[in-house]
């Protein structure tokens, strides 16, 4: 007891120090968002307002939601937003379907070359991918899919991460359940849809959420695949077009940035634990 009491002041001090450091890191991590939010809410019609005036632009004196409406009107934000929704939606649906199907034989069936195929799928994690975008662009052009939603989506949906995640989920389904189903005369197809998929819904959700965040945010590949069709560009690509526009309006851009960030933040807050498990990195 006495030993413990002796340590207390030191402990309190170290906790205090920890919090101090944590607050500094917090400032580093979230400051860009806070400033952007402040700019997006700034009434630019007020006299003397400029984002080129630093500490002042962090605390706007007159607030407005005008920028949020204006960015829709002047920059076709709705179109970019819709493109993002379509591309993300197709990618999620495709990833879930393809992974859920492919994982079943890998987890539960016996067939020739099974281990080889599984190893090949996992090997894509370490394959050099520096030049893939060049060849994929050529391939898509050949089949007339370059500059379409599907051209962006198709190369993204079959991933080692998705297949591995679903395989692990299926391996966790008790064998007794599927054996019972086999005795009742169920086919593999029925076992997959009636037992495996429903029982793996947590993994499907996880995969869906990771795919959502990754696709919503992805910039390079959609930019390349949609070079011939700028009208189909998602928000991540559109945002930078706004930034490079002739009539540079930081208030509108800030509003656009907030609009792009909000869906991801909502998903993140709702599914925080998933991201904090480090699941993604373990397989990525």
């Amino acid at each position: 007891m006495s030993a413990r009491r002796r340590f207390r002041p030191r402990r309190a001090l170290s906790s205090l120090l920890s919090y101090l450091v944590l607050l500094l890191i917090l400032l580093f991590a979230v400051f860009p968002f806070l400033w952007t939010l402040a700019i997006s809410l700034t009434n630019k019609a007020a006299p003397g307002v400029s984002i080129y005036d630093f500490p002042a632009s962090l605390f706007p004196r007159s607030l407005t939601l005008y920028n949020f409406f204006n960015v829709f009107r002047t920059f076709h934000l709705a179109r970019y937003f819709l493109n993002s929704v379509v591309i993300t939606g197709l990618t999620i649906a495709g990833t879930l379907l393809v992974s859920a199907l492919a994982a079943y034989p890998l987890a539960r069936m016996r067939f020739p070359l099974k281990n080889f195929l599984f190893a090949a799928i996992i090997s894509t994690l370490v394959l050099p991918s520096e030049i893939n975008f060049i060849v994929n662009t050529l391939t898509l052009k050949r089949v007339h899919l370059l500059g379409t939603y599907w051209g962006v989506v198709l190369p993204l949906i079959s991933t080692a991460f998705g297949i591995f995640l679903m395989r692990q989920a299926y391996l966790g389904v008790p064998a007794a359940l599927t054996e019972a189903a086999i005795i009742d005369g169920a086919t593999d197809w029925q076992i997959l849809w009636r037992i495996m998929v429903p029982l793996s819904s947590p993994s499907l959700t996880a995969l869906g959420i990771f795919t959502l965040v990754n696709t919503w945010n992805s910039y390079f590949w959609p930019m390349v695949a949609l070079l011939p069709a700028p009208r189909l560009a998602p928000l991540a690509v559109g945002m930078l077009k706004l930034k490079g526009q002739f009539v540079y309006d930081p208030f509108n851009i800030a509003a656009g940035a907030v609009i792009m960030m909000v869906p991801v933040l909502i998903v993140f807050v709702a599914a925080q634990r998933l991201f904090m498990r480090g699941l993604e990195g373990a397989v990525k």
Partner: peptide
């Protein structure tokens, strides 16, 4: 704290570009 530190990870590079180019500008923070 953990969740807050993760928010930059789920931020698109294009948003990061918008925000950080303000931070880095001559009259930036």
């Amino acid at each position: 704290f953990r969740a807050s530190f993760y928010v930059p990870v789920i931020t698109s590079i294009s948003l990061a570009a918008v925000m950080w180019s303000w931070i880095y500008q001559r009259s930036g923070s």
